[in-house]
């Protein structure tokens, strides 16, 4: 096995996903298949091939440093599950 159910649970937790035991089992098997396939790709000799991080051959897409209107506080907050005054409101976080 390339991946254990414990690792799947850990990754799910990092992504704040709740998964049932059954789902964990299913995802472990699926992820295992994916990783095995990656192993197959690794058999290919890529010596001398530059690693690539993007599928398109575009570089240097820039923007000028010019202020445009923001959308304003009211609109910014309009999708928020909870807000108060001009702020988003969230459960208390302190550390």
């Amino acid at each position: 096995m390339k991946i254990s159910s414990r690792e799947v649970e850990y990754v799910a937790h990092l992504a704040r996903l709740e998964v049932t035991e059954k789902e964990t089992e299913k995802f472990t098997a699926q992820l295992n298949d994916i990783l095995l396939y990656i192993d197959k790709l690794n058999e290919l000799d890529t010596k001398g091939v530059e690693p690539m991080s993007h599928a398109i051959a575009v570089t240097n897409a820039f923007r000028e440093d010019k202020i445009l209107d923001s959308i304003g506080t009211q609109q910014s907050l309009s999708n928020a599950p909870d807000a108060r005054g001009e702020f988003f409101r969230v459960p208390k976080v302190i550390d």
């Binding site: 897409a61 820039f62 000028e64 959308i71 304003g72 506080t73 910014s76 005054g85």
Partner: peptide, 25 residues
Amino acid sequence: SPNSHTCPVCLGMPGVLPVLNKKVV
């Protein structure tokens, strides 16, 4: 004033695309 300098990009709305400010580079 709070949240007045925001837009869909910096609010992290789905489907938006960030474009790099050349001056930062």
